[in-house]
Design a protein around this nucleic acid. Structure first.
Lengths: 225, 225
DNA sequence: ACCTGAACACCGTTCAAGT
DNA sequence: ACCTGAACACCGTTCAAGT
């Protein structure tokens, strides 16, 4: 399956281990990312990995930071009209990175040891806001609320009953057809909203942008001290 | 340690298993929640659990729904002045539930099978917004952005480098003192903001409320179709 | 310096058996 | 109907040994 399994490659390296781990996580999810499976992908015995990585925790820190490195960094400039589009682009880029690596969603912000790419990303974000004229305190508020939104949205994206992937309408409708009477009486409002979405359809990108623009609008309008 | 270990209680029940599992997760975290440890807490052999719960996944679904049941449900009313405080109270209540059960943060919205308490909670939320006059579409937008915010914020709360728990100032300052020269030149903006927070202090509740009010203000001001 | 083999202390879960 | 014991196929990781 993996690229590494073709030739009888020897000589591992930390980067090779991390790259294979990222690929394995993308293919098999966080539950499938085991030291043993990773070793097999690399055509090596499990213990060989421990020469390049302290333990599994450090391995995960490593691949999480690779995901961070894929997020487009906003540029810092004194032009007061650029922070909004820059923040919008960064939020979109972060969401896309999290969609490419779904296993990372529950892991990115939970990690205790932020890597260099993570630090660089947040440095760029703070720089962009600071140079646009935001105060220290406001910079933290804006970073906090934007990151929280992107994380939380992507987290929900994987599981909301009325919006699982493309076929949101179908899925919701099928759910309604299964036990219509019972659910309809117990959760009238929920069913009503889900039914509406089932007929009208549900677009995740549009939903994400609506919330994002709502927040950016609020940030711009807010009288920061 | 557990309440169950005192008497030689026999006769398990599904609720007893779920209650013990919740308590174990609160004490030992998601990594410490194992079927074997849970069985030991209950003074029973691991296999005994499988009579009351299909597998570990269903167990987790069960305790996640208990957490949902702890979240204060907003009431539905036609009074247009109540949705805002109701939404604010619900967001605060959700955040507090997630803080009481930190293991749940990365799990709540990822679960594929929402339980009755989860459905009831969202039914109440939709009802509150619908009766306040929000359209179907707007109801989904508001639910989405509020849930995303609370989730994302609580997720960050556990790991942001400049805000780990109470002693945010100390921790940040110590981090700065460790490698001052190197970090300061590579991540100037980040260090600048962190230093500022280290001296001024960082209050998580205040931070949460600032973002929450920003979003609620934006929701109220937005011209929903 | 880097990789291996065997082993240890764990997992979730099945299956046949006890009461 | 409910609980047990032994077993299976997994984990991450240590330790002593190979090259």
């Amino acid at each position: 399956m993996s690229d590494e399994s073709r030739g009888p490659r020897r000589r591992l390296s930390r980067n090779a281990v991390l790259a294979a781990a990222l690929s394995l996580a993308d293919r098999a999810g966080s539950a499938g990312l085991t030291m043993r499976a990773l070793a097999q992908d690399l055509g090596v015995v499990p213990m060989a990995l421990y020469k390049h990585v302290a333990d599994k925790d450090e391995l995960i820190d490593g691949i999480v930071d690779i995901v961070w490195s894929e997020v487009e960094a906003p540029v810092a400039t004194a032009d007061p009209s650029v922070w909004r589009p820059a923040m919008r682009a960064r939020a979109t880029s972060l969401r896309q990175a999290l969609r490419r690596h779904p296993w990372a969603v529950g892991l990115m912000e939970t990690r205790m040891h932020p890597g260099p790419a993570n630090l660089a990303q947040h440095d760029a974000m703070m720089g962009c806001l600071r140079r646009a004229g935001f105060s220290f305190r406001a910079t933290v508020h804006v970073t906090s609320v934007l990151d929280a939104y992107v994380y939380g949205f992507t987290l929900q994206e994987k599981s909301l009953p009325f919006a699982s992937a493309e076929e949101s309408g179908e899925v919701a409708q099928r759910k309604l057809d299964t036990q219509p009477a019972e659910l309809a009486t117990t959760f009238p409002y929920l069913i009503e909203v889900v039914s509406e979405l089932a007929t009208a359809g549900y677009d995740y990108d549009a939903e994400f942008n609506t919330g994002l623009d709502l927040i950016l609008e609020a940030v711009e309008a807010h009288p920061w001290e």
